[in-house]
Amino acid sequence: MRKVFSKPASLSDKPFHYCPGCTHGIIHRLIAEVIDELNIKEEVIGIAPIGCAVFMYDYFDFDFLGGAHGRAPAVATGVKRVHPDKMVFTYQGDGDAAAIGTAEIVHAAARSEKITSLFINNAIYGMTGGQMAPTTLLGQESTTSPEGRSKEMAGYPIRLTEMLATLEGTVYAARVSVHDVKHIIQAKKVIKRAFEIQQKKVGFALVEVLSTCPTNWGLTPIEATKWLEQNMIPYYPLGEIKVPKEV
């Protein structure tokens, strides 16, 4: 008997603290699988966010640095400039990357920092209690948009990946989803590509991952995957938006 599927070595054995059905766990696993496959566990430095994934460093078995809300791309810049040959990645939610840390991610991209940036979009603030995110869809209810997000009050949801793709410094920009097996397999390929681009020192590589938040969406895990597919993907289309010729 040969193990065809088991916990990747780069993941620690600590059980995740996420809510049942939250897809952060899937994304964590995919990152660990990619790091194992590229054999870079001893080279990699992760930058943890603020938000539900604030304790993500507990789930990985390699170097990690946790800083302030939204500043992960700046922290990653500091690390990468000191260790240009190491592999540095950031993991940020929609509040972290698309609200409080907008300046930091825009300028890390503009400088084409040779890092891998993972942007987890679940259209809501999870940890603080289901408030409206910059990526909350029009009409979507949250604890700070109880009647649904209105464009008159809160404007429009941000397509961060398309926005960053307009910058010369962003060499790779893609959006994937983890709501079903087919898309999870695709997501892993894309995340792996974003790390390979860093290995080749091409420039700033961004992957947006559409993720679920059953708890704050008020849905069962299964319903949440359906909601993502039916509501998020039409507004946040999947695919590779920008691919460098080096890959």
Partner: peptide, 8 residues
């Protein structure tokens, strides 16, 4: 925050 990263 870059200082934080470099110091770390």
């Amino acid at each position: 925050n870059m200082v934080y990263g470099a110091a770390g």
